[in-house]
Amino acid sequence: MTGGSDEWWEGNAAVQVPAQVEYEKATSVEHALTLLTRYGPESRILAGGHSLIPMMKLRLAQPEMLIDINGLTELCYITLAGNQLRIGALTRHAQLLDSAVVGQYFAILHDAERVIADPIVRNWGTVGGSLCQADPSEDLSAAFAALKGTMVIQGPGGAREVAAREFHTGPYQTVVRPAEILIEVRLPIRAGGGSSYRKVARRAGDWPVGAVGAAVWLERDVVADVGIGLTALGARNFAAAEAEDYLRGRPATADNLDRAGQIAAENCRPVADQRGPADYKRHLARVLTARVLSEALSRAGG
């Protein structure tokens, strides 16, 4: 607060405010890495802050130093590079939703973005922030798993690439090390594909009870390749690898899509919580998987 801050907070005991924290603006990726190295594991990157700041209010996160990267416009882009779409980590959710090139190649991402939080939150929340927050119910994690994307992580010694399915190591945990930053997501563009994402939530803008995304490539009427991503459903690596293995090489019939849904449901481990019981979530995994596969196929012209 301006001036006598302590008295103001003490008079407002019910106020949710973050604990004391230091703050510095990064002026480049290199500068951010220097700051991360200098301040160590108690420092955190601050992007949109729409997960981190609420967690700081609740003391679920208590970093000692915030390194604000919102000025790093060089991390804010969506570009085509050869047969890849590259998304800068600081790209806002709203920019992903507004991007015509994203919609052209990856309908799944527009489907997902339409149901991520609300338009105002999407204005400021970032793609990279959502991934690094690593919430087990996060939507883009499933979409990028379905698309078999690659994450580019920058550290003091240079950049490294990690498959989307190897990015998360558990709830709220990723392979990004304390002195590293996620800088980009790369998505392979392959002809003949279609994709889709569906989410069941209790109300508009809410976290999913369950959500599934799929990308499918056809050769004649046979599934040449397929990616299936699940979120909030306890799927390993946000993916349904067993269902993909079943479907690959099989005709894209309704029966086979239903069977893939069953396999996805059998291989995920949803937990009961305030959003619903485990068997209901398993039901969602089955039904949503079949639906997104069907919609992805219709978009692939299949």
Binding site: T2, P18, M56
Partner: peptide, 17 residues
């Protein structure tokens, strides 16, 4: 131009500052 704590939320800066 103000001197603030880094943890200050924008809403409180606008309203109380």
């Amino acid at each position: 131009t103000r001197e603030v704590e880094p943890r200050l939320l924008l809403i409180h800066f606008l309203r109380d500052g």
